[in-house]
Design a protein around this nucleic acid. Structure first.
Lengths: 239, 239
DNA sequence: AAGTGGTCTAGACCACTTG
DNA sequence: AAGTGGTCTAGACCACTTG
């Protein structure tokens, strides 16, 4: 079996939702209807519905039916994922636009965060990440040149800074801050926002074995992006 | 069927792991072994194993077996803190204003999240949390009345819902979503926002041993609140 | 009464890893 | 070759919501 049948059904349903054929809160086919349409047993149709429900894409009510949940891009809070992978794992196309890749004298805040001296040179990259041609995130990143001397020679339209950094300086630690902000004019422009709207801003400082590597400001429109996480405490009680 | 068979098997396995009978990375019974032990079909035993795997409690390898996963590292980004403690630990004064504490017929989305039936009664509380007399967070919370029958009798101007819930139904699991939104008029009013500004909204679903306990929407002005965290990867490599 | 989702059975064939 | 997990079938009974 090249592709599982339940996966094909999920794929089909996701497509219907994406193209808007099945709007939010509309009813989707029942287990029995899907089973007949795809010539599978009810258990297989059920699995497709069930997994989409666990992913937060559908919600179901016994005796009533299954419905499309409100949709948004979602990423995990717990893991630091490469945004390209994240987008592609949703079955969408990823692309990037490199706006800047330069060397700057280090602003005081950045110097302090990266353990550099004020006015020392620091690498800076500015990139827009697109999901299916729609800007999902503006990434402004300062990189410690002592740790990553070749940063400025990379082609960041083909590899994300995150992926490159994780290859040359494996991540050992990260610090996050999450804020809601109203973006400035410049950010609005690059995120194709006609009017300023609430944006999520992640500030992420990453560390490798030898200390602070980079400080990134990741800004995404609130209407297109959210962070999701899952915590499990069952096993933590023991220690 | 009072309690589903797959749930009983999960319960049993969780207990074994919690009491240390099944240490990290040790092998747990196979689908066939569990099916025989509990006199159920393999599909039912499989479901128990599968759900524990999705919860991150087990990991499985085809042809080899199922194993107890490693402890998750803690992330203060998602650390579930009592907001009263959080405010007081900054040396500020905490107070709360109870706006609503009622019983409602359950909306479909809430029912699905809490494992309740549509239109069944659900408890609802609405509270504003103040830091030094300034509103910091609007908390709208739906609570499973089957698990927390006395919720509606509590005095939430003196104890936060989070603290009360953690006392009567210890947290085993939590799911988070973080979004940036523009608040509606009602929210603006209670957060004393003259104009709508970007707000952080945490959606938090909490679980106890017996299932979903509550679903909370926590909304805070972006200018007054942010989430901060620290991730350590040394222990996280598992999959 | 008809349709929905929730649970379960007792089989089946498969791909995979191990001794 | 024996055991594991992965997928699937064609039934069954149930609780629930709706017309």
């Amino acid at each position: 079996m090249a592709v599982a049948k339940f996966a094909e059904i999920k794929e089909h349903m996701l497509t219907q939702i994406e193209i808007g054929a099945w709007p939010e809160h509309s009813r989707v086919p029942s287990e029995n209807e899907l089973a007949e349409q795809f010539s599978v047993s009810r258990m297989t149709a059920r699995r497709a519905l069930q997994e989409l429900t666990e992913q937060g894409i559908l919600y179901r009510t016994q005796g009533v039916g299954s419905f499309v949940a409100a949709l948004k891009s979602q990423s995990s809070l717990l893991e630091i994922r490469n945004i390209a992978d994240e987008i592609q794992s949703r079955g969408h196309s990823y692309s990037a636009q490199l706006l800047q890749l330069t060397e700057l004298p280090c602003p005081a805040v950045i110097a302090s965060a990266l353990g550099l001296k004020h006015q020392q040179q620091v690498f800076f990259s500015l990139i827009v990440h697109y999901e299916d041609q729609v800007p999902l995130q503006l990434e402004a990143r300062y990189v410690n040149p002592q740790q990553i001397p070749d940063y400025i020679q990379q082609d960041f339209s083909h590899i994300t800074p995150h992926l490159y950094l994780s290859q040359v300086a494996p991540l050992t630690e990260a610090e996050h801050t999450v804020e809601a902000i109203l973006p400035d004019h410049f950010t609005c422009q690059h995120l194709h926002l006609k009017k300023p709207e609430a944006c999520l801003r992640l500030t992420r400082r990453t560390f490798s074995r030898d200390g602070a590597v980079s400080l990134a400001y990741l800004t995404s429109p609130g209407s297109r992006y959210r962070l999701g996480g899952h915590l499990n405490f069952a096993l933590e009680k023991r220690s």
